[in-house]
Design a protein around this nucleic acid. Structure first.
Lengths: 112, 112
DNA sequence: TGACTATATCCGTTTATGCGGATATAGTTT
DNA sequence: AAACTATATCCGCATAAACGGATATAGTCA
C-alpha cells in the first residue's frame, strides 16, 4: 500500500504529468524537455529522477545525451495506469500545447 | 492538468487509499473508519474531507452519523480510476487485513 | 433548554516536497 | 590533458501536507 501511494505521488505533480504526456509520443532527451517545459535543467532532471525511481520512465545514454522514455517493463499496475493515463492526458489542452511546441523544437533540432 | 494532479494527490497517501479500499465494500461512517484505521477522529475526518473535495467520495448524513461512500457521479476519470483501483487495491495485504478487522467490528456493531 | 454524541474545523508543530542556482560527474573533442 | 557539453546531484530556502489535541458545530434525547 505504501508502494502504491508512492507510485501515485509520482503522478501527483503537474510537471511530471506533462513530462509523461510528452514521453508518450516517444523518447526525449533532457534538453528537449527543458525547452518545451521552459524549466531549468536541475528541475527537469529532478523530476525525471523521481519518475524513474517510481518505475514510470526508463533512461538510456547515448554519448552525452540521456534519453528518457516510458518504462514498458513495469508492473501490471504501471501498464494499466499508463494505458489509462494515455487516453486521459491526450485530451488535455496543456498536452496539446506541449506537443505542438515539441514539434516546433524538433523541426530545427536545437538539441543535437 | 492541474486538476489531474490534484486528483492524483488525493490518491497519493496511504491512509486515503486504505479508506477508499474500505469504501469499495460499501458505505461506512466515520467511527467505523476510526476503529479500523486506529487513527484519531480529526485525522480520519480530514482525510475524508480531502477525498470528498477531490470528488472521490460522497457523504450522507443520517442523524448524527455521516456515511461516506465512493462517489459514483464523478467524471469519466473518476470512474475509470475507480475501476482500476478496485482490482489493484483488493490484491494488497493491507486491504485484506482492513476488511477483516472491519468485519469484526461490524459483527458487534460498536458504532451504532 | 441542557446534557450528550458524532463529526467538522482550527491551530500550532513537524515533516515532506518543490525550487533553482551552484557544483559535481561523465562523455566528447581537440 | 584541457576545454567543452549534457546531465545529475547538492544545498539552502520556501511552500505545502500531515498530524492530532482542542474547540466548534449539529443532531438527538431527556
Amino acid at each position: 500500500m505504501k508502494t502504491t501511494s508512492r507510485l501515485f505521488k509520482a503522478l501527483a505533480d503537474e510537471t511530471r504529468l506533462r513530462i509523461l504526456s510528452l514521453l508518450m509520443e516517444g523518447e526525449l532527451c533532457v534538453c528537449n524537455l527543458m525547452e518545451v517545459l521552459r524549466l531549468p535543467q536541475s528541475t527537469v532532471s529532478r523530476h525525471l529522477a523521481y519518475l524513474k525511481n517510481a518505475g514510470w520512465v526508463d533512461d538510456r545514454r547515448e554519448g552525452v545525451w540521456m534519453y528518457y522514455s516510458i518504462n514498458r517493463k513495469g508492473s501490471d499496475f504501471h501498464d494499466g495506469m499508463f494505458h489509462f493515463l494515455k487516453r486521459h492526458l491526450a485530451s488535455l489542452p496543456v498536452s496539446a500545447a506541449d506537443r505542438k511546441s515539441l514539434a516546433a523544437f524538433e523541426e530545427n533540432n536545437k538539441c543535437a
